[in-house]
Structures are given as structure tokens and as C-alpha cells.
Amino acid sequence: MKKFFLILLIINVIVSPIYAQLAKNSWLASAGLTYPRFVNVNVTISNTNYGGFLSLQRNFTEHVGLRLTGSYLHFEGEWGTPATTSETNSLSGNLDFIFYLVPCESVSPFLFAGAGVDYRMLTNKATPTIDDNAIAGQFNAGFGLEWELTSNLRLLTEAAYHLVSNSEFDGALGIGEVNAKDSYMAIKLGVSYYFAKGEPSKYCQLYSGLAAEKISQVDYERIEEIIKRYIPREVVKEVVVEKPVSVEKAKAEKWVLVGVNFEFNSAKITPESYPILYDAAKTLLQYPDLKVEIQGYTDNIGSEEYNKKLSQRRADAVKNYLVSKGINPARLKAVGYGESNPIGDNNTANGRAMNRRIEFKIQ
């Protein structure tokens, strides 16, 4: 069980963030399989356990929700010599408070706690005086992960601890429980479907990395004017990010991202570039059939081999950003062309700044 939790934690750390399409409030339904296991009981614990669950959840904000869950669980244990197999079948209903720790991520961790009632049915009980069928209360707590598959569909993984209000859940009375109470763990694997959403949320920061002040002294208006001299007028209106390229013309033209820049001798995107890249991502999401070659270019300072590697890293950085915003990586190809195909004069500062650019070639 410890290995299972460790694997979930490692996966959660290494998965790249993709901002989910959140709503201020929503309804979702979930269903799946459960593996339950006794923790503190008075029978020998068996691995022959199984179960399933259905749940209905209401999220009131991006962080807070309330979930009603119905479950069926089957436990087995052994007692006596020779060993006799006991069975516990449980039908339970639980109401849990949900809190999402990082709701904007594609892998969203959450905590939950609540209470419920359990109707248990015993077979081959170890203590004859215990009723075969009875109702008891229980307390629940645990954590889980929602893995985004689509805007409305999630994969659900969850681990919970349940403390039953008496010592009869396993069919045996004794001293092995916590404060004379039986308890068990339950690991869930299922899917969640958001079937109703309210107003779209503005909670997540869309322009990640955006700074209040420009830290670069490059004259971007001057760069744009130079670019316009080299690109036919009827194309310029389509290729500038503020007026994204149309599908028909895009297939025959290059899409120049004016103002997308990097720190000197680095593939780190400058803060003022993020709004432009975000608009580019929105356009690609609007036209899901378009495939793009992301072309990175540099000026002529440095060796040709080094500039080609640097331009490749910069193209890869733009690709990674677009993927983080939900663009299918299969639609993107990053290629570094180094100092080739200059569109400005490398003998001037403005010309070199113009040559340090990113272009999209629609394929």
C-alpha cells in the first residue's frame, strides 16, 4: 500500500501542468471500482476483497465541494483452528466535504472528510452473539487525485480511511481495534463526468509569467514596422498575433509572432511574451485541425552551430508552453533554424532583435 501511495505522489510531481477549464460551480457524477482492506480487526486479514461505488458531487467554488457516495464492499477474513473464512458485505452511504488543493492543474489533488452509515451483513462470524445484519455509523477521511482527460471527463484515484462506530464490522469482538472500533482502508479507481457547469472561472492565471513592467528595452513597435516592410501588406494583417491568421491563408503563409522574445543567450521566454503566446494558443484551440511547425531563429552573434542549438531550445520552449495550454503535442513540431533566413539587418541592434524571432509555419 505504501508503494501505491508513493507511485501516485511521484506521478503527481512529474506531470506537466495544463490549465483545466474550470467553472465557478459544477455538478459531476463518478463511478468505479474499490479495493477495501481491513486495518484494525480481530480476524486474520485476507486479500480477497472487492467493491464498487457511485457518487454525486456538487462543487460550490473552484476549491470546495460536497459529495454523496454509495458503495458496496466485500471483505474476507479467517479465524479459529482449523481456519474458518468469515465474510462481511457492506452497503454504505457517505457524505464528504471536498477541498481541492490546486484546482487549476490537470492533475488536481484534493482532501476529503465526512461521515456516513453502513449496513453490514455477516457470514461465518467469529462471535456468535453478534447480529448477522446491523447498521452502524462511520467516519471517513482521505485524499485523491483528479486526472484531466477532457474538459468534462476526469480519471479518479483515491485512498480513504474509514473508522466504524463499533467493533462488530468484522464479525468478531476483541481487543485489536482502535478504541474498540473496527476500521478499514479503501482504494478507488474510477471516472468522473462533469455534466453541468456554471459560469467559467477566472480563478486560474491565464497569463502565467506576466510581469507588471517590461524588463527589456527593445523597441517592439520599431521591430514590427521593420517586419511589415518585408512581408506583403495583405499578409501582414493576418500574421500579426493581434489579428490571428485565418485558416485559408494560414496554410500558405508563415505566422510571425511579433514580440515573442527570450533572455539573452537563453531559451527562457521573457514575461512580456506570454500574452502573445496565449493568444496564439487560443487561435490553435479554435482551429484544432491545423498543424504547426514552430520555427526558431537567432541573430548572427555566436557560431552557427551554437545558434542552431539555441534556436532549437527556444522553439522547444514555445512548444512546451502551447502544450501546457492544452494544444495536442502531435500538432506541433519544433525546429531551430539558427541564424539562417534573416529578415532584418544583423549590423544593427533593431535588425538583430527582429531576427531573434519565432515563426509558425502551417503544415
Rank of each mutant, 00 (worst) to 15 (best):
I18K: 12
G344M: 11
E78F: 13
L277V: 04
V256Q: 03
K2I: 14
G32E: 05
T150M: 09
V41N: 05
A159P: 00
G70D: 00
W27V: 01
A136R: 05
N328R: 10
G198F: 08
S192K: 11
G344R: 10
L56M: 10
E248Y: 09
I226P: 00
D345M: 11
N346D: 15
S30R: 07
G198N: 08
F195I: 09
F262W: 06
N12D: 12
K308M: 12
R233C: 00
E248V: 06
G326A: 07
V218T: 15
S165I: 02
M185E: 08
N261I: 05
P342R: 14
I215T: 15
T48D: 15
Y274G: 04
D182A: 06
N140Q: 06
N124V: 03
A196D: 10
G302D: 06
H162K: 04
A315G: 05
E199N: 10
V335W: 03
P244Y: 04
T84H: 07
I18V: 15
T270L: 13
S26E: 15
K251S: 08
I301S: 07
Y297L: 09
G142H: 05
E76W: 02
A267L: 01
G77Q: 07
A196P: 00
V247D: 10
T34I: 04
E146C: 04
P109Y: 02
P128S: 15
K319Y: 08
P342M: 14
G52L: 04
A252Q: 13
A315N: 05
I327Y: 06
V178I: 15
N133L: 08
C204A: 09
R154K: 13
A31S: 11
R331H: 13
N133H: 14
T61Y: 03
L66V: 15
I223Q: 14
S108D: 01
D345G: 09
L101M: 13
N355D: 14
L122M: 12
N49P: 00
E168M: 06
C204M: 08
M354Q: 12
A186T: 00
V292F: 03
S192E: 10
E242Q: 13
S90D: 13
Y119K: 01
D316S: 02
T48H: 14
N346M: 06
F97A: 11
T129I: 12
C104E: 12
S90I: 05
V178H: 07
P82A: 05
T85V: 13
L257R: 03
I231L: 10
L153H: 08
P128W: 11
V41T: 15
F4G: 13
F143N: 01
A134K: 11
D170G: 07
N59T: 02
A31K: 01
C104W: 04
V239E: 12
A29Q: 01
